[in-house]
Amino acid sequence: MAIQPHDTKVEVEVAGIKFNNPVLGASGTFGYGLEFAELIDLNRLGGFCTKGLSAQPLPGNIPARIVETHGGMLNAIGLQNIGARAFVDEKLPLLRRYDTRIIANVFGYSDEDYLEAIQMLNDGAGIAAYELNISCPNVKEGGIVIGSSPVAAARLTAKAKAIAARPLIVKLSPNVTDVKVLATAIVEAGADALSLINTLVGMSIDVNTRRPRLNYGTGGLSGPAIKPVAVRMVHEVASCVNVPLLGIGGIASTIDALEFIIAGASLVQIGTANYYDPTVTMKVIDGLSQYCASKNTSVKELVKSLVKD
């Protein structure tokens, strides 16, 4: 069934930004967006998050960087990226041709690094929002080190919010004892929205060499295997903060996306599924339209609509 590109039933507004639909590509799985131009109609995409951008370009970790597991994969890419400046100068001019929301995912080893990257991105026309990646498990400083401490996370959020020229989304790690504590602290510090979850720290061992399969040792688990954990966390966080949520973790189908929306996510991000099904975002957009039409409802109405008896 052909669906109109801009079905109003699937439109959503988050932090003052209008999205044609709630389906975004997740950071680190969508490159700089342009890689998908040959495969999907970027104008139909709700939006996407860039690969984590740092003030200085980063080389990334020594390979092997990925290993497939049951229902998912482990990665330890180590934030290989062209840098915030190159993104603004080289990628944004090409991206501005498309009608899609561009969210710049920001990474740093220290508070200063994060702020420097945001300053650089503030110059870039066409960026809709920032997503602060304080949850990357594959670096020894920054990332998860900040994201697992409510004090450090709140401090960075406040500093970032003070200089950010655009709405600030903070991306939470699942590798914490109580995600609600982090979420509350970060929202109190001024975050406009929260996205969750980043990958779960995991490990895989080659029994022939008795070495970890990933050179880094551990890696971040993503893919369908993590979906129930992610849905639970979105549900928990939805119950304790009143900013919009971006649900992430193992989404590969319309039903997966709906679970997150019903649990409390206004937007969803699709990650690993893009690798093995590069047109998955389009399928989910169509699927959401069909679901809304058949149930005579809208995505807005479905957000946080979990039935509690």
């Binding site: 799985t29 969508f30 490159g31 990334g60 990925i66 497939e68 890419i77 893009n274 690798y275 590069p278």
Partner: peptide, 13 residues
Amino acid sequence: PMGCGFGVCVGCV
């Protein structure tokens, strides 16, 4: 080892 084959995962380096 390839995650995607089209340049977006940066796993195959």
